[in-house]
């Protein structure tokens, strides 16, 4: 399908206008984060560019610690989800036992329980385990994932059953087959799920707000909220520097994995 020149120009104009509108708030934040506070307050265009806002955000605020905390929390959740979801998906695809379908149904059923609706007992559980202000408290509740199990199950199903039968004859056990055959074949779905898990964990808000009471394991999202509320002077340049710092890791992840995420999420959505 080739487009006429006129149509091409129309499309480019639409694309450029949409891109500017959509990226507008982000561009504004990035520009502001390099502006002096004087320029911001007087509402002028930047007269000078400076790194001062970033330096201030990192010096006046434990931003580095928050970033590290977020990195640890997101990585641990990502790994936990990958391990649990791939084990469960393997059982649902390659093992036959009574009640398998019922169990799968129950797994899918957990998608109907929004975390927000069960947050009160969850908070009490974490508190009673003495897990407030700890990494386990921020991560363990999110290890089991129905979406991830479902996504990997779709992918594992494409592995020929004959492969498992052949390996059975050679006397290869389930766990070895899982590690040496299934996981390497499903690498790309694992990466998709991993990226998605990291992204959503990094951006989590309600749970870290409840499960942290001090800076020790506080994640960067809650740190950003603090930066915004504690900053009495309306130092918007510094706040924006903080916000831009927060979104850089996920934006990089998204730019690298956009095609894969799109493919993986669409498969999970449509099939």
């Amino acid at each position: 399908m080739t487009l006429s020149l006129g149509k091409k120009i129309t499309f480019y104009i639409l694309l450029i206008i949409s891109a500017l509108l959509l990226a507008g708030p982000m561009l504004m934040a990035i520009v502001m984060s390099f502006m002096t506070n004087q320029d911001i307050l007087s509402g002028s265009l930047p007269t000078a560019l400076t790194f001062d806002n970033y330096i201030a955000a990192f010096e006046k605020f434990p931003l580095m610690k928050f970033l590290l905390n977020s990195f640890i929390v997101s990585t641990v959740i990502m790994l936990g989800q990958l391990i649990l979801a791939s084990l469960a998906a393997y059982a649902f695809v390659f093992m036959e036992f009574k009640g398998r379908d019922l169990l799968f149904f129950i797994f899918i059923g957990t998608m109907m329980v929004p975390f927000e609706a069960s947050v009160i007992p969850n908070f009490h559980i974490i508190r009673d385990l003495n897990w407030i202000d700890t990494y386990p408290g921020l991560t363990v509740p999110f290890f089991a994932t129905a979406f991830g199990t479902f996504l990997l199950r779709q992918n594992f199903k494409q592995i020929p059953k004959e492969l498992r039968e052949a390996s059975l004859i050679e006397g290869i056990g389930d766990f070895k087959f899982f590690l040496t055959v299934v996981l390497p074949v499903a690498k790309s779905s694992l990466i998709t799920l991993g990226a998605y898990g990291f992204l959503t964990s990094w951006n989590m808000y309600l749970w870290p707000l409840l499960a942290t009471t001090n800076d020790s394991v506080r994640t960067v999202q809650i740190g950003l909220k603090q930066l915004q509320t504690q900053e009495q002077l309306n130092d918007w340049g510094m706040i924006m520097a903080g916000a831009v710092t927060v979104i850089i890791p996920t934006l990089i992840l998204l730019f690298l994995g956009q095609k894969r995420l799109q493919k993986g999420l669409t498969e999970g959505a449509i099939k």
Partner: peptide, 24 residues
């Protein structure tokens, strides 16, 4: 390039997005 821009808000957390719009 445009696809990347259009999907980019997916990478922006609630906290960051709210701060952008708080200023707007």
């Amino acid at each position: 390039f445009f696809r990347t821009i259009f999907s980019s808000t997916m990478g922006v957390s609630v906290a960051a997005a709210s701060v952008f719009w708080l200023y707007l």
